[in-house]
């Protein structure tokens, strides 16, 4: 995806979010660290542009909720959670860059309910690349990208990576690794 395509997808998602809620009442956006956070801010910005309403935006770090501490080679850096509003009774839209196995979203929902009891949780992602391992479905998708497991989807956002773009890379080492 190009920077332009990312912008258009973000704007479209912002409309869908408002449409689904039939307004902005009770809405909150929560980005999953790390690239979900700038995406959530962009969506909130788009909503402000066309609805004139400033939605609360939070950041959620799911590090402590991962189920793979012993599987990853290194612990992820803890980036912090910042939820400057009460979740209770709100409709929370979780925002992330890529939806893949669904485990991040599962962890994010676990984390979220530790902070309160939202009225509903919805999910918005920039890219859905398939290969779900859990029964999780996104409500709002920027783009569906069919991929193979040997590929890595890299999302770059200006806030984090100095530029916008989505690439798919083949990971050569897969050919030699992970037997069985």
């Amino acid at each position: 995806m190009t920077a332009d395509e990312i912008r258009r997808a973000t704007v479209r998602i912002s409309h869908e979010v408002v449409e689904k809620q039939a307004g902005t009442e009770g809405l909150a956006l929560i980005g999953i660290q790390r690239r979900g956070v700038p995406l959530a801010r962009r969506i909130a910005g788009a909503i402000r542009d066309h609805e004139g309403v400033e939605l609360p935006v939070g950041a959620l770090d799911i590090t402590f909720y991962r189920d793979d501490l012993s599987l990853v080679a290194q612990q992820p850096l803890v980036k912090g959670t910042d939820l400057p509003f009460d979740l209770n009774g709100r409709t929370v839209v979780l925002v992330d860059d890529v939806l893949y196995t669904g485990r991040t979203i599962r962890a994010a929902m676990d984390a979220l309910v530790d902070f309160g009891r939202p009225h509903a949780i919805r999910l918005a992602v920039l890219v859905d690349r398939g290969h779900r391992e859990l029964p999780i479905r996104a409500d709002h998708v920027g783009k569906n990208v069919p991929t193979s497991r040997e590929e890595v989807v890299r999302v770059h956002l200006a806030e984090v990576d100095d530029e916008d773009g989505v690439d798919i890379e083949r990971t050569e080492p897969v050919l030699v690794g992970r037997a069985g």
Partner: peptide, 16 residues
């Protein structure tokens, strides 16, 4: 290899 196949939807590039 292990790192290239995150079992969560890990954003690459943020490895500590």
């Amino acid at each position: 290899v292990d790192e290239l196949i995150p079992s969560v939807d890990e954003a690459p590039g943020s490895r500590p």
